[in-house]
Write a protein that binds this DNA or RNA. Structure first.
Lengths: 345, 345
DNA sequence: TTGTAGGCGTTATCAG
DNA sequence: CTGATAACGCCTACAA
């Protein structure tokens, strides 16, 4: 059972006019007399007429909706980004279709195929951790689908990108640990394929280099699924804790990895920051309520969403092909709390 | 710049056939010879043909998308529900259009108007805290728009509803506090209009009655915006703390209110549970990492989403008008942790 | 077995 | 100033 909404035809019939006259009157065309316009508009308002967006889409070859693909909606960072995207899209009359890959390549491929079979005008995407083959995405881009990357970007595809200044964020976080006399700073990173992993590790190494510390590869661990699988985090934490020369600090390079590691360390009754100082990426307000209150690198998620959406709308609505692409790198905020503050050691 | 995708026409032209033959072949009609079918299908695959969903929508008067309206996406409970909805919708070939009211009536009205101007086949909604006039929603429902309510339901509208067993959840939580010798148990509730508020308060009162305790109205507070505005929470917490006869426990009846109150109490250096025992609704995993670890009433959010989506799809795809509506009340989980466990007082 | 001719709701073009 | 017609991409009676 469906509810049948009024169409232009209904109005035309009721008023003894043609559909074209009605259409023109509703769009306030100059060629219609004020009297007819008024009659038509009044009647339209009365029966609560709304133009059918599907018919418009078919005619105008656009859907007024944009697709968003992230790895997980329930992740605070992503839901904040989506919030930002939504606010801009909404303001400009666009729908947002939100989808999640759950870090799976197959799901990502399926979703892309689905979304781009004409149901979106543009795409905002943070690629899944597993993905390292971007031919599909590249093809879509070459065919003319407007794409904006955020967070996890694909270097080979030339389009707008919105990221956190990951290098600087981790650089400052690591610096802070070094200033707190940490000597063996470990890191747990996301999948090595990801742009964010490379950038964040570069920040870590930059800080160590400045302090003339050696890069010890045994202190660098990866979670291929971005911490979505608890076991992969447990595994690397255990590896770090059973090293001959144990780390005295951890820098956690992804939201999920941060909270999982924190939880694991607590369960093992490891004192933070005394035994291990901890700082990691996370966007949830809740981390301030943790015990110890967690030091975090927080990304300007809402703004990232806003910027990505604005850039995408620019692409979609631009008349000429855009060739000048922007890379927006927004500054993260380093929030130092108890988990990384070593008063004396 | 748009990318032009292949159409049935293109295939027909390329193969010297008519569009209807192509259409039929692609849908595996019995009236087309195997040879032609194969030729057409091969070519379609080769040029990566995908039927245009917009054209299909126009023809079939359905969009294969469902709308979801919640108060806030970034709220863990809602993002988990959305997750559940998405999983079912996705499996059945439906799009999900996610929107948020931010607890504002105007936004809710605008979104409804937008969503229902033919761009969705059905709606899953948890109404905003401010809303107490449901004529709009009622009209939509009467016009035949399939609607499923979850969480915050509208009693006057007769359709499927998926809720947590709120009464029982709060009843058990309050009982737990009573068993822990709490004598003056206060509650902070969401907007009094909401179904969830009424149900949850009923649970509170039921427990007190069983223990032959008086209901002291000064211990019952409301946040009209569901805790979305920090000041409204601060105000009621202050009111409770400055009562002549202070409360020794708090039951917090909404996610946001729970975390805000917890944060306020911590800032005021109030010991939990010694000074005030605390338990509240919350769906974030993070609460176990709080200090003190927070006791919570956790809702089966993912399942709620799944059920709501399944019920909606049933409504949408049902041939005859549905008259037998379900009210699914799923059991919440009471997780007792430090914030409400009083060992000795 | 294949082709022709509408029609879904709208707007642009061309006529009057 | 207003109306008829075609077109967007697809499907389906009805013809051939």
């Amino acid at each position: 059972m469906k509810f049948e909404a009024a169409t232009i035809k209904d109005i035309a019939k009721a008023l003894g006019l043609s559909t074209s006259t009605v259409s023109r009157a509703l769009r306030d065309s100059y060629e219609i007399s004020e009297a007819t316009k008024k009659k038509i508009k009044d009647y339209a308002a009365q029966i609560n007429y709304r133009p059918n967006p599907v018919a418009l889409s078919l005619k105008e070859k656009r859907t007024l909706s944009i697709g968003v693909l992230v790895s997980e909606i329930a992740n605070t960072f992503f839901s904040q980004v989506i919030n930002g995207i939504e606010s801009i899209a909404y303001k400009n009359g666009y729908n947002v279709i939100i989808t999640q890959s759950k870090e799976s390549v197959e799901r990502e491929e399926m979703i892309l195929d689905y979304l781009t079979s004409r149901s979106i005008d543009g795409l905002i995407i943070s690629v899944s951790a597993e993905t390292n083959d971007f031919t599909n995405l590249k093809q879509l881009h070459e065919k003319g689908l407007p794409i904006v990357f955020f967070d996890r970007v694909v270097e080979e595809i030339n389009t707008h990108k919105v990221v956190t200044d990951n290098l600087d964020g981790v650089y400052r976080a690591t610096q802070h640990l070094l200033q707190n006399q940490c000597k063996r700073i470990s890191v747990i990173a996301n999948n090595a394929n990801l742009s964010i992993t490379k950038e964040r590790l570069a920040g870590y190494k930059k800080a160590l280099n400045e302090y003339k510390m050696n890069i010890d590869e045994s202190l660098i661990k990866y979670c291929d699924h971005g911490g979505l699988i608890v076991e992969e985090v447990e595994k690397v934490v255990d590896e770090l804790l059973t090293l001959k020369k144990k780390p005295d600090a951890m820098v956690l390079l992804a939201d999920k990895i941060t909270t999982e590691t924190f939880s694991i360390l607590k369960k093992k009754n490891i004192n933070m920051p005394q035994d291990i100082a901890v700082i990691g990426f996370n966007n949830s307000k809740y981390t301030s309520l943790f015990s110890p209150a967690l030091s975090v690198i927080s990304q300007p998620a809402f703004e990232m969403g806003e910027q990505a959406a604005q850039l995408l709308l620019n692409l979609i609505e631009s008349k000429r092909a855009v060739t000048d692409f922007k890379l927006e790198a927004l500054a993260p905020e380093i929030i130092i709390r108890e988990s990384s503050q070593i008063s004396s050691r």
